[in-house]
């Protein structure tokens, strides 16, 4: 699928398919059922099958709110396919200022009151949104992480995808849609 390399060789191998991680000699595995590695893998997979306008391939991944499995994503540079993804944490208070600079949002548990306004604004931008915890996946991000049958997968919010300015490979929708019906 995608491979984990040291971040220093990332640029050299950016043409190849792979994932580069900056990580310490060993990365911690969460005490949850699934690991940050799996989360990073999944999110990069979704990014892999998503297209931004103007073929933008240097992406800012912004992590918002309280997340459990975003360790490998924050303050890290990752690569998948032709994409180079820079992950960072964005404070909830600054979110509206950062909207235009982020192409990917990973939402944790948020304490914002005006999430509705946030989503409305997000949909007018070419942004890929992924929720960490949203089992219903009807309101909010376009994709929602979903752990099922001992395997980490995702659900899709077709409404959000329909309104989004980014294009997602239909095969990915097929994968997420099945879980919606489960």
């Amino acid at each position: 699928m995608f491979k984990i390399y040291g971040c220093f060789v990332n640029i050299l191998t950016s043409f190849s398919v792979g994932l580069l991680l900056l990580l310490s000699a060993s990365f911690s595995i969460a005490d949850d059922e699934y690991s940050s590695y799996e989360v990073a893998e999944l999110i990069l997979g979704i990014i892999h099958f998503t297209r931004w306008p103007d073929d933008q391939n240097e992406l800012q991944l912004c992590i918002l709110g309280q997340t459990d499995h975003a360790d490998l994503l924050s303050n890290n540079q990752l690569a998948v396919g032709k994409f180079v993804v820079d992950g960072r944490v964005v404070e909830e208070s600054e979110v509206f200022q950062q909207l235009n600079s982020c192409q990917v949002f990973f939402f944790g548990k948020m304490s914002l009151d005006n999430t509705h306004q946030l989503y409305t604004q997000l949909y007018s931008n070419p942004v890929l949104t992924i929720d960490e915890m949203n089992d219903a996946c009807r309101v909010g991000g376009m994709f929602c992480l979903h752990y099922y049958d001992n395997k980490l997968g995702f659900k899709v919010n077709l409404d959000a995808i329909g309104r989004s300015q980014v294009r997602v490979h239909p095969g990915v929708l097929r994968l997420g849609q099945r879980r919606l019906s489960e």
């Binding site: 699928m1 997979g45 099958f49 997968g153 490979h169 990915v172 097929r174 994968l175 099945r178």
Partner: peptide, 13 residues
């Protein structure tokens, strides 16, 4: 047809 499913290693799909 199966490329995405293979990518995500979703054998069911």
């Amino acid at each position: 047809a199966i490329e995405v499913a293979v990518y995500f290693d979703d054998r069911e799909i």
